[in-house]
Design a protein around this nucleic acid. Structure first.
Length: 589
RNA sequence: GGGCCCGUGGUGUAGCCUGGUUAACACGUCGGCCUGUCACGCCGAAGAUCGCGAGUUCGAAUCUCGUCGGGUCCGCCA
């Protein structure tokens, strides 16, 4: 390494020094018989000057060959720019007067400019990801990502956790998401799965007595991606023995306090607010509530029990609910066309429709107003209606009505840009999740989270007869309406674990076949334990104010699970297929 | 699996609804000129059979159908 400095590091303090730089050509300018080159490396850009009074003929000649993104080695002297200072450049006070230039490598013309304000399709960025990452902005994000992970490791070390790696090639177990599957050459016809999370191994580590474990863990889920969901992603996976819910939450709060301080210089308030799942659903119609704006759901079930509007009265008196949100002061902007759009959102989220009305000139009108005139005063008072308000109703079973209104609520908050302080981070714990839910199609119970969460002591009694009434010691950390971490206190008693598995319809044989190893382990003195797993990609995304996970991952995949850079996934040769004993059967369309 | 949106020189867009001669604009690229530029400037040039296939038509970037790729949302997923 002959380099003496990074381009972006040079300042007026280096005045007079002879330096050797390595970097890429950002752009060059030819002024006739005086040339400038902007040379870029990971620390920034510095201006090179090629002056005929300083350089020999050969170097001057070389300039005409140099194009964007050529890789150079440059010798020269740092000189002050005097009257030509560029205040917009970090190194703008100086420039490097070139003595000698060597072209280390040529570069094809890149498909897009290596600069931050680029306007190019994500497609192209992903195909040429190595060039995209060369941009200062992406470069910075990757470094921020490393700093985040480094800060996490420091914190965990300070709390006496130890980092243990768990295998990637594991047994496929039914846990929720589809497993990625890897064929085995040594055992033809058998398959490994890639971990959806290190869940079972970290529990086994607790049985082993490690007490406090963590891992920066890659997780794989063969499900459709989203803007905030990648096929493979990274979690801080942690688990502790002999703890209760509060221990995990407190530790997580301490961690996040340190992370936001170190990364953003922000002091976040601890302890975080807590809502139970039911509270969050009732207030926000979501288990990941966006709380940076009000517009909470109001329950109107009592009011509409005996009203003449059948949609409401039948829901209200038939065990369901009537709930409403109020969009303050937007009656004029809320056109019929928009309301139709909102109704679509409600329907998408399980509602049959979206009842609405406006409050103008002191009375309710439009939408369903004429059907519920008799309840006008009660509505006015309960919802504190003012002129210009728009009210949206959901009338259905409790969960359905809330869900649909919650979706409309989030849409309205975004559409009308109701969040004022965009730099504020709202942190809230959502606790006490239902452990099971009924599959609407089959009528059987399925685990809402995963199978290993401990039921709460006051609902465990319903396990056999009314599983939907069982809540788990489960907790999610939600930041700005986005689920960032998820965890629980685990079951450590083999009998209880078996009971839970049977609740979702597994029989003894299946339990033994899939989870026998875990239940065996629990027979040998499993400590009470619990943990949590914050998503590193999502956390970084939120911290950096980005809205797509791809931008915080070095080599992300498309929504189709494709790597546009390498072309994965791809076919295997017939030799490879034969070796692992796999025949490809083309499905007929 | 489904809904919606997108695909036009190297890049980003316009044109498409309402089919019609040389597909327009910006940036970039190439050539020439220029000794203080920094989004250098000036002059000039090249570069797209409009994702692919079929159909309708005298004629398709434009209309229809199919297909491929991408985005986003729902389903799915913690």
């Amino acid at each position: 390494m002959k380099r003496t400095h990074y381009c972006g590091e040079l300042t007026i303090k280096n005045k007079g020094e002879n330096v050797l730089l390595n970097g890429w050509v950002q752009r060059s300018r030819d002024l006739g018989n005086l040339y400038f080159i902007q040379l870029r490396d990971r620390e920034g850009i510095v201006q090179l000057v090629i002056d005929p009074e300083r350089c020999n003929e050969q170097t001057m000649q070389l300039f005409s060959d140099i194009k964007r993104e050529y890789v150079l080695e440059v010798k020269g002297e740092v000189v002050p720019r005097n009257e030509n200072i560029n205040p917009d450049m970090k190194t703008g006070e100086i420039e490097v007067l070139v003595d000698d230039i060597k072209i280390l490598n040529k570069a094809k013309l890149p498909p897009f400019h290596i600069e931050d304000n680029l306007n190019v399709s994500e497609n192209l960025r992903l195909k040429y990801r190595y060039l995209d990452l060369r941009r200062p902005f992406m470069n910075k994000i990757m470094r921020t990502r490393y700093k985040l992970i480094d800060t996490i490791r420091n914190f965990m070390r300070g709390k006496e956790f130890i980092e243990i790696e768990t295998p990637f090639l594991i047994k496929s177990t039914p846990e929720g998401a589809r497993d990625f599957v890897v064929p085995s050459r040594m055992h033809q016809g058998k398959f490994y799965a890639l971990p959806q999370s290190p869940q079972l191994f970290k529990q086994l580590l607790m049985v082993s007595g490690f007490d406090k474990y963590f891992q920066i863990a890659r997780c794989f889920r063969d499900e459709d991606a989203r803007a905030d969901r990648q096929t493979d992603f990274t979690q801080l996976d942690l688990e502790m023995s002999f703890v209760e819910q509060d221990d995990v939450l407190t530790l997580t709060e301490q961690l996040f306090k340190v992370l936001f301080k170190e990364m953003k210089g922000i002091d976040i308030k601890t302890p975080f607010d807590r809502l139970t799942y039911d509270q969050s659903m009732d207030m926000y119609g979501s288990d990941k509530p966006e709380r940076r704006y009000g517009m909470t759901l109001t329950d109107l079930t009592e009011i509409f029990k005996d009203c003449g509007f059948k949609v409401f009265s039948s829901a209200a008196s038939g065990g369901g609910v009537v709930r409403a949100i109020v969009l303050k002061g937007k009656a004029e902007e809320c056109t019929r066309k928009k309301i139709t759009e909102y109704e679509e959102i409600a329907k998408k989220n399980g509602a049959k429709g979206l009842a609405w009305l406006r409050f103008t000139e002191g009375e309710i009108n439009g939408g369903i107003a004429k059907f519920i005139k008799d309840k006008e005063d009660a509505l006015k008072e309960t919802l504190s209606l003012e002129d210009g308000d728009v009210v949206f109703f959901g009338a259905d079973e409790r969960e359905k009505a809330s869900n649909a209104l919650g979706a409309v609520r989030v849409h309205l908050i975004r559409e009308f840009e109701l969040i004022e302080d965009k730099d504020f981070f709202d942190m809230v714990w959502i606790t006490d999740y239902p452990l099971f839910e009924k599959d609407e199609e089959t009528g059987s119970y399925i685990a809402k989270h995963h199978l290993f969460s401990m039921p709460t002591s006051d609902t465990i009694q319903y396990l056999e007869k009314e599983p939907e009434k069982v809540y788990g010691i489960l907790y999610d950390l939600v930041i700005n309406g986005s689920e960032i971490a998820s965890g629980s206190i685990r079951v450590h008693n083999p009998e209880l674990q078996k009971k839970i598995m049977k609740t979702i319809g597994m029989d003894d044989e299946e339990i033994d076949q899939k989870f026998g190893f875990l239940l065996d382990a629990f027979e040998y003195g499993a400590p009470p334990h619990g943990g949590i797993a914050p998503g590193i990609d999502r956390l970084l995304m939120i911290m950096e104010g980005m809205d797509n996970l791809k931008d915080v991952i070095a080599f992300p995949k498309t929504n189709n699970q494709m790597c546009l850079l390498t072309g994965a996934p791809d076919e295997l040769s017939s030799e490879q297929l034969e070796e692992i004993g796999i025949d490809i059967v083309k499905s007929e369309k």
